[in-house]
């Protein structure tokens, strides 16, 4: 139960940060990315503020033997760069530059009911769902060897 409450509050704080910072205004996002237009550098400050806080957390928190409420760290351990990473990031970047939303702001804004937000978010969730179907179909094919997995102390496979 406490994990559910923490996740709810984290989502609330995260979403409030997205709104305050300007990430839920697609026009502002596009004006950040469109460096040849009416350039708005604000989103660089969002990244700076978030990383300043979280970088500090990373200097201290993982030194604990385990998370306060968990029994192990679910942190990604991969360091290799592969084609999936590059192609995925390129596709994401293209969609971000086109629509002005990344996943967090889209899910935060969907309650406004604006038709363009609903279209984008619906398509985004459909894309994630389609990907999951493709991924599970691929991993059950006997000809494909399963992807190497880390030790139990590493690897949430869905995290970066």
């Amino acid at each position: 139960m406490r994990s559910i409450v923490l996740a709810l509050i984290s989502g609330l704080v995260f979403g409030s940060g997205l709104i305050l910072s300007g990430m839920t205004q697609p026009a502002k996002v596009v004006n950040f990315l469109d460096v040849l237009g009416d350039w708005d550098p604000s989103l660089g400050f969002v990244m700076g503020g978030a990383i300043a806080v979280h970088f500090l957390a990373y200097r201290f928190v993982p030194r604990l033997p385990k998370p306060v409420w968990g029994d192990r760290w679910g942190l990604p351990s991969r360091r290799d760069v592969d084609a999936r990473l590059l192609v995925g990031a390129a596709l994401f970047g293209a969609g971000w530059g086109l629509g002005g939303y990344c996943p967090g702001p889209a899910l935060t804004s969907v309650v406004t009911g604006a038709s363009s937000t609903l279209l984008f978010t619906g398509a985004m969730l459909a894309g994630m769902w389609g990907y999951s179907i493709w991924e599970s179909a691929r991993s059950t094919q006997p000809t494909n060897s399963p992807r190497p997995s880390g030790s139990p102390t590493t690897a949430l496979p869905e995290a970066p």
Binding site: S3, L6, A7, I9, S10, G11, V13, F14, S16, G17, L18, I19, L20, S21, G22, M23, F45, V46, M47, G48, G49, A50, I51, A52, V53, H54, L56, A57, Y58, V61, P62, K66, P67, V68, W69, G70, R72, W73, G74, L75, P76, L156, A159, P160
Partner: peptide, 19 residues
């Protein structure tokens, strides 16, 4: 706003060990 995002991410890390 960015600092709030960082705070939320840090809480998930500290309490649950999650990204």
């Amino acid at each position: 706003g960015g600092a709030l995002i960082g705070l939320s991410a840090s809480a998930l890390l500290l309490f649950e060990g999650r990204v």
